[in-house]
Simulated scan of single mutants.
Amino acid sequence: MMLLKRLMTTVLLMFALLLPTMAQQKADTTYTFRFVPQKDMFYVPWSGNNMELARLLKCIESNRTDILDSRLPLLVDGYCKSLGSETENLATAKIRSNRVKSELITRAGIKEENFITRNHATEGDFVTVRLTVPVREATVSDAEAEAEARRKAEAERLAAEKRAEQERLAEEQRKAEEAQQNTLDDTPSETKITTDYHFSLRANLLRWATLTPDLGLEWRICPSWGIAVNGSWTSWTWSDKDRRYALWEVAPEVRYYMGEKKVWYLGAMFKAGQFNYKLSETGKQGDLMGGGITAGYRLRLNKALDLDFNLGLGYLNADYEKYEVIDGVRVRRGNETKDWWGPINAGVTLVWKIGASRAH
C-alpha cells in the first residue's frame, strides 16, 4: 500500500513538473483558402477567404521576426481534384499556391524563401497555410485584434458586394441605352445616314407631278461618295395631235456627302436629251445638252426611305427646229440655238435604299 502511494505521488509530481513545459510547446495553426472548382483565381471575398486572410495576416505580424529569420516557415499546401487528370490537377494546385503566396507577399511584406510549398492532386479545391507557433493564452488585446480583423473582413465583404452591385447596375444601364438606341434607329430621324446599303432606287416626285415619269439609281461607293443616274421620258398629244409635249432626258451625277451625318452633299451633273414641244402655233423639236453643280439635302424617313431635296445650277444648250402643222403636215420654219445659264435641275426625290430594311 505504501508502495502504491509513493508511485502515485511520483507520477503526480512528474506531471506537475512537465505541465509548464507542455504549455510552452508549439502547435500547428492552419488557415484554409477555398477555390472555385476547376478555377485557379484567388477570390479574397469569396467563401470566407477574407476572414481567413485577416487571421493569417495577424498571425504573421505577431511572428514576423521569426518568419523573416526562417525560424518559422509558412507551410503551403495546394490541392486540386476537380480536373480530368493528375497532371492538370497538380498544375492548377501549383498556380493556386502561388496566388495565395503572392497575396501574402504583397500584404505582409514577406519573401518567397519564407515558404515551404507542396502541391497535391487529391482531397479538394483549396490551399492551406500552416505555422507552428507557441500556444499561449488569449489576452484582451488578442480579442480586440480578432474583433478588428473581423470588422475589416466584413468591411471588405460589403465593399465587394457594393462593387458587384455597381457592375450589375452599369450593365443594366448599358443594355437600356442599347435598346433605346435601337428604338431611335427605327423612327424617322436625320441623326444618322446608315451605310448598310450600296444601291438605292430614285423617283423625282416633281417630274411625276408634271406627268413626266422619272426613275433613277444611285450607287454609294462609300459613305462619302455616290454615283447617281436619273432618266425621264414622256410623250403626250392632244387637240387632234395639234399640241404635243414629249421629251427624254438622262442625267448622270457624282456626289460628295459631307459632315458626320452625311445628309448634305455637293455634286457635278451632266444632262443630255431631246424634246418636242408644241404648246402654241409654233412647235420646237431638237436636242439639249449641258451640266453644272448640284447641291442637296437627304431627309431620313425611316431605315429604308429618304427624301432628297436637290437643285442644280449650270449651263444648257438647246439646238432645235421650229415648225408649224398645216393640214396635218409639219412644215419647217427654221433653226435656232439657245444657251441658258441658271437652274438646270430641281427635284424632290423619293429614295428607296435597297437592302437597308433587312440590315438589322
Rank of each mutant, 00 (worst) to 15 (best):
K152D: 14
K152S: 12
K152N: 14
K152R: 12
A153Q: 04
A153E: 06
A153M: 03
E154M: 05
A155D: 07
A155L: 07
A155C: 03
R157V: 09
R157C: 08
L158W: 06
L158E: 09
L158N: 08
L158Q: 11
L158K: 13
A159H: 04
A159Q: 11
A160R: 00
A160E: 05
A160C: 01
A160I: 00
K162L: 12
K162D: 10
A164N: 12
A164S: 12
A164M: 14
Q166N: 08
Q166A: 00
R168S: 04
R168N: 03
L169P: 09
L169M: 11
E171F: 05
E171A: 04
Q173C: 11
Q173T: 13
R174E: 09
R174P: 05
R174L: 11
K175D: 05
A176D: 03
E177D: 13
E178K: 05
E178C: 01
A179Y: 04
A179H: 12
Q181A: 05
Q181S: 05
Q181P: 02
Q181R: 09
N182Y: 07
T183H: 02
T183Y: 00
T183F: 00
T183A: 04
L184E: 05
L184Y: 07
D185H: 03
D186A: 13
T187E: 06
S189C: 01
S189D: 06
E190Y: 03
K192N: 01
I193N: 01
I193T: 06
T194E: 07
Y197K: 00
F199C: 03
S200N: 08
S200Y: 10
S200E: 13
L201H: 09
L201F: 15
R202K: 10
R202C: 02
R202M: 06
A203Q: 06
N204G: 04
N204V: 00
L205A: 11
L205I: 09
L206S: 09
L206K: 11
R207K: 12
R207L: 14
W208V: 14
W208Y: 14
A209K: 15
A209S: 15
T210V: 15
T210D: 14
T210R: 15
T210G: 15
P213H: 02
P213I: 05
D214G: 03
D214A: 06
L215K: 05
G216P: 04
